[in-house]
Write a protein that binds this DNA or RNA. Structure first.
Length: 254
DNA sequence: ATGACTGACGATGTCAGA
């Protein structure tokens, strides 16, 4: 299974580029974030024409997640399984090929000390708590987690001092997912530094390679032996009309 | 050039992203 995650920063703005990428790359499963559209307005046609089934959990203007799959999609769940409903559309789960796929768009969190940052931490903790009950089986968490877990995941740790992406509490939130029984599948396959999935639109960040690795594919232990390869498609960050995130891909046997 | 933010909403700005 070729599994990918991509924060497209608006499905409608990225549709042509996404379709071209799907036609060329043909991932089995793609988890999208920041689709920024209500489900009724989601551009399903061109994606179905490429052979994808869709599961949607969107909202107007902000957030929004979607799972595209070339294989049958079962047991779709929107948001958290229990507790109060999250007013923001950030989480979508489905079972595909016997693997529980969890598409997550964690809150950015603005800056440590803000209300949004508290929401980010609570959201990550709630996700870890829910996933802890499901990591005994095959499960993959793919998405924009808005955390660069190690200093090696940013181009310059000093430049990220005090940032929401590298803050110790945010990193503890990421670590909570590992404690819940997940493994950083991308990092397991690709230990070298300098691999980034997001570059700021501003200040020539991409040409300077001023990036951060905040888009992740985590897998339960049952899937670790199935890991085959991982990469980031930096080419999708190039040129006009690019999202500020590039697709992250992990290949699993089977 | 990989190049000096981008997208939604509904507008001539404001919010959010990370």
């Amino acid at each position: 299974m070729k599994l990918a995650t991509w924060n497209v920063n608006s499905i409608r703005a990225r549709l042509d580029r996404l379709c071209a990428w799907l036609a060329a790359e043909r991932p089995d499963v793609l988890c999208l974030q920041e689709t920024k559209v209500e489900d009724a307005s989601f551009p399903e046609g061109p994606l179905r024409a490429l052979g994808y089934e869709l599961a949607l959990h969107g909202q107007r203007t902000y957030n929004g997640v979607a799972i595209l799959s070339r294989r049958p999609v079962e047991d779709v769940a929107r948001g958290f399984a229990s507790g109060p409903e999250d007013p923001q559309a950030r989480l979508l789960s489905a079972t595909i090929g016997g693997v529980r796929i969890v598409d997550a768009y964690a809150p950015n969190g603005e800056a440590p000390g803000t209300e949004k940052f508290a929401y980010k931490l609570a959201w990550l903790a709630r996700l870890a708590e829910e996933l802890a009950g499901r990591t005994a089986g095959p499960l993959a968490l793919a998405g924009d987690l808005n955390v660069a877990p190690e200093d090696a995941d940013v181009y310059d740790p000093a430049a990220f001092a005090g940032d929401t992406l590298t803050d110790a509490a945010a990193r503890a939130g990421f670590a909570g997912l590992l404690s819940a029984g997940l493994v950083d599948g991308f990092r397991r396959m690709r230990p070298e530094p300098g691999l980034y999935s997001w570059w700021d639109y501003r200040q020539l960040a991409f040409p300077k390679d001023h990036g951060a690795r905040i888009d992740h594919v985590l897998v339960s232990r049952a899937l670790v032996p199935s890991l085959r390869a991982a990469r980031i498609d930096r080419d999708e960050r190039k040129g006009k009309g690019a999202s500020d995130h590039a697709p992250v891909l992990v290949e699993l046997a089977g």
